[in-house]
Each structure stands twice: as C-alpha cells, then as structure tokens.
C-alpha cells in the first residue's frame, strides 16, 4: 500500500482507538480494581469481582443465558435455513421483495417490536382474543420462557437468514448439475454439496445470532418479566441500579472470554470440515 492510502486510514485508527481500545481498557481497569470507601479517585488492585462472580446463583444465570442463546440459535437455524433456501430458489424479482420484508422490520426500533409481542402474547392480547373466539382456553404465555424465546427468535432470525441466503445464491448451478450428473440424488446433492458449501454462511449466522443473544437484556425483561434475569440484565443492574461498575465490568470481561473461546472452537470445527478448500471469511 502506498503512503497516501496509508494516511487515509488514520481517522479510522483514531476512531477505533477512542471508541474501542480506550473503553475496553477502562472496563478492564474497572474489573480489577475497587475504589476505597468515600474516595472515588484512589484505586486498589483486586481480583475480588471475578471471585465474587463465581457464586452458584450467578453461575445459574450464566447457564440460563447460554442455554437461551443456544436455543435461539438452534431455532433460528432450523427456521432460517429452509427460508434462505426457498428464497434463493425463487426468481430474482420476488427474491428482492422477500429480502426487503426480512430487512424492513429491522428499520423499526427493536423495543417497539418487542412491545408489540407483549400485546400479541399477553393475557388479553390478540392471540388470546383469537383463541377465545374459537373457544379454546388460553391463559397467555407472556412472562414465560416460551415468550422470551419467541421474541428472541423473531428478533434475530434475519441475521441467520441473510448470510445463509448470500452463500446459497453464490453456489454455481453447474456444481449442482455436476453432482446430479455424477449420480447424486436431490438429497445427496444437498448433503454433500449444497450444505457444505453454505457452511460459511451458517457459521456467520450462528455468530451473528449467538453473540447478541447471549448478552441481550431488553427482550428477556419485556417478555420474561422482572424476575427473568440473564447475564445481560445482571450487567445492566450493576451499572444502572447498584452503581457497582467494577463488578459489572468483571462480568462483561468474563462473558467476553467465554465468547472468544466459543468462537475459536467454532473456527476449529469448521477448519476440520473443509478438507479441500473454502475457509471462513475471517
């Protein structure tokens, strides 16, 4: 790269430094220090916040968060892959329209959309009105695990569909014809050619869904109610309610380390699968 192009990157480097590196450094500092009583400027180095996290109740919350994010990811994949597959098969005009339908809701504020689910799922909501009309007893599932899961899947499914769709439409039709030509049935062609070639999209989708899902706090609160506490809610509570920035930072760092480990694991499995070529975009 030549010098003038190099210089063009300076603003971005500065931006990254101010918006990512410094805040991250601050969070790290917060997580390993505690302020002395009555004196907010004197810090004292400590690992207490990390130790404090590993209490049974917190571990429980962490497990619950990971489990919810895992379920969300699995449902998004089960529902999203066929959707992406169908969209990739229809003609290009309809394709653009349907993709727009997937993106359009994302232009509306996420909280608003989640409030809408409250109305749909609630005791006197649209769903219960509907069930009452056809004489089925329905108590409403708002403030249950199912409600949270529905809200999460609804919110994150576009992030699964879009990357899978992108990899599917890039698969050369000749490859599919070649597989048929060599004797593969439709099912074998899918399992041996189409699915392996769409794996980079699947992995991207899983990351794009799992990462925000594991730390989400708005959807669980609105659809799960006040007693529904996830790791995201725990962090939020430390900062907003209890003012315990040090403990909040420590939880954030722990979560980050877990995410990095799981991403490295995903990358490793993907490398094992791709024997011939075709690597992940990162």
């Amino acid at each position: 790269m030549n010098k003038s192009l190099n210089r063009l990157s300076y603003p971005y480097l500065l931006w990254t430094f101010i918006m990512i590196v410094i805040p991250f450094f601050l969070i790290f500092i917060y997580s390993v220090t505690s302020s002395k009583e009555g004196s907010p400027v004197i810090f004292q180095f400590t690992f207490d916040h990390y130790r404090e996290f590993f209490s049974p109740s917190n571990i429980n919350i962490l497990n619950k968060s990971i489990w919810l994010a895992f379920q969300t990811t699995v449902y998004c994949l089960i529902l999203g892959y066929p959707a992406a597959w169908i969209i990739s098969k229809i003609n290009i005009r309809k394709q653009n329209a349907i993709i727009l339908f997937f993106i359009l809701p994302m232009w509306i504020n996420m909280l608003l959309r989640t409030y809408a689910w409250q109305i749909i799922l609630g005791r006197s909501g649209i769903l219960s009105t509907f069930f009452n009309i056809i004489n089925i007893k329905y108590e409403g599932i708002l403030y249950t695990d199912s409600a949270v899961l529905i809200g999460m899947v609804y919110n994150f499914i576009p992030f699964m569909v879009l990357p899978i769709f992108t990899t599917l439409i890039k698969i050369d039709d000749n490859l599919i014809e070649a597989a048929y030509d060599l004797g593969a049935s439709t099912k074998e062609t899918f399992l041996k050619i189409i699915f392996p070639l769409s794996l980079p999209g699947v992995v991207t989708g899983i990351i794009l869904v799992f990462l925000p899902a594991v730390s989400s706090f708005a959807i669980p609160r609105l659809l799960g109610g006040g007693q529904y506490v996830l790791i995201g809610n725990l962090i939020e509570k430390q900062f907003y309610l209890l003012g315990n920035w040090n403990f909040g930072s420590a939880i954030a760092i722990i979560l980050m380390i877990l995410i990095i480990i799981s991403m490295m694991f995903m990358k490793k499995t993907d490398e094992l699968k791709s024997r011939g070529g075709g690597t992940l975009p990162w």
């Binding site: 597989a179 048929y180 024997r275 070529g277």
Partner: peptide, 25 residues
Amino acid sequence: PPNKRNLNTVFQKYALFPHLNVFEN
C-alpha cells in the same frame, strides 16, 4: 433424471467441488 443416466458430463467451467480435494472430487 440426470442421476439415472449412464453418461457423464465435463463442464465448460469444470464445476469442480471447491470444498473437496482432488481425490474426493
């Protein structure tokens, strides 16, 4: 259907499976 015919095709742009090595192709 193509998979039941006793003939095979060599495609103009080769159409090799990019995720498989030479042997597996």
